[in-house]
Design a protein around this nucleic acid. Structure first.
Lengths: 223, 223
DNA sequence: CGTCTCCTTGATTGAAATCAACTTAGGTGG
DNA sequence: CCACCTAAGTTGATTTCAATCAAGGAGACG
């Protein structure tokens, strides 16, 4: 989740709860944590969706490949985010490691069982669903932005915020990943960053480490 | 919801449950049903969000107005859809009547109370949240479409499907509404419809009643 | 040192936005 | 019932922004 625990949180009281733990609530962990190397597939569209996962370290993307080869990225997940919620038999999206990362799987207890037997867990899962919903709406808003500039600036601000220090965006994903998340091309992503650099609003320490030099001004650019 | 009970449903077992009823689960209805005339505001961004609503008749839109005057429509809700779920103190979007419509309000019991006391209601609300989430993802996919044509055709197919007869799209909303939902302008919406008419893939009985004359061909157009 | 991948930059094209005019449909009152 | 008025929708001309096509760097790794 990009807006992790941050600005747009919609249910404050949930924030104060302890982080989701395997031991709590009688969840069944499916073995130990699993590691994935960069770009490794965690699960694929159509796989049996009898478990869901939590990011321990690294970043995960969920995406869909279309018949014409286009790829859309639905979401990026950062440590402590839960993903792979699926209420049918199969995953409707694929999940892949953006960078080397560590995840842990839990058996999905089934919705009826869940609601019937376990208030605490129910509440936790509600909160994750809310988070997912909020992010999906935010993503829709991003995609509907008028210009590439707006999309890119919103993305930078969002990503910087999720990582404590809101004036540095440490992009762990490639330009292609960003493009597929924002509905742009790599070229446009690159050009837009260069343009912002030209305005001295950002500075590229490396291609993936970006300093936001004037957050107020940047915020003005995205309405 | 556009994909109401239809194709992309992610939790089949919930479909077989009886429709959500006020009497069930000890919900508090806030008075009788309420009527709204076309374009009337049902609630506004920032209003106290201590209740949620169900559409009884008509169509409702949820939207956000930006500082520059642009409007984004997040979703259209049709009869039996539930909307206005909010887990903070305030609504983050406005809701308005697309056409004359009837809704009923329920007091939001609070998440903790909900999970603690009422399995059946919990399950119901889970299902509505899932539906909302699925729609948000579908909307994001629409917005990321390559062309206006793809967006428009997907929208027509979606809307036709929600209303029993999948070969007629009875648009109850204006061109502006469609444009703000798809991230286009009215002119482009209109032009795209004219283009489809030129291809003899659709026929406009009136501006808002559209016959889909070749669904297979239309489906090919949107990947 | 070469090769591969990722990123950037340049030139051109193309699709949708914008600006503007016109048409149609629907509602109101004479 | 008709004439007008207004809002909604369509169509046309032009501009703009991002996609596409193409080439050139920069860093990582063997």
């Amino acid at each position: 989740m990009l807006n992790q625990g941050g600005t747009r949180n919609t249910f404050p009281s949930l924030n104060r709860r302890p982080a989701f733990e395997a031991a709590d609530y009688g969840l069944y962990a499916l073995g130990p944590v699993r590691h994935f190397t960069q770009n490794a597939r965690i699960f694929s569209e159509g796989d049996n969706a009898d478990n869901f996962l939590k990011v321990v370290a690294g970043v995960v993307r969920s995406c869909k490949i279309f018949s014409d080869g286009r790829r859309q990225i639905d979401a990026f997940y950062v440590p402590d985010d839960v993903f792979g919620f699926e209420f049918g038999a199969e995953y409707s999206l694929s999940a892949e490691a953006v960078c080397d990362c560590t995840v842990i799987s839990y058996r999905w207890p089934g919705l009826e069982m869940l609601a019937a037997n376990n208030q605490g867990l129910s509440l936790q899962l509600f909160s994750y669903m809310i988070k997912n919903l909020g992010q999906a709406q935010q993503h829709a808003r991003l995609l509907a932005s008028r210009s590439a500039l707006e999309k890119m600036v919103s993305f930078l601000l969002m990503w910087a915020e999720h990582s404590g220090n809101s004036s540095v965006a440490d992009l762990l994903m490639s330009r292609q990943d960003i493009a597929d998340y924002l509905g742009l091309t790599v070229e446009t992503v690159s050009r837009t960053l260069s343009y912002l650099k030209g305005l001295a609003l950002i500075e590229l320490a490396s291609p993936r480490e970006i300093y936001l030099k004037d957050i107020v001004q940047l915020q003005l650019l995205c309405g």
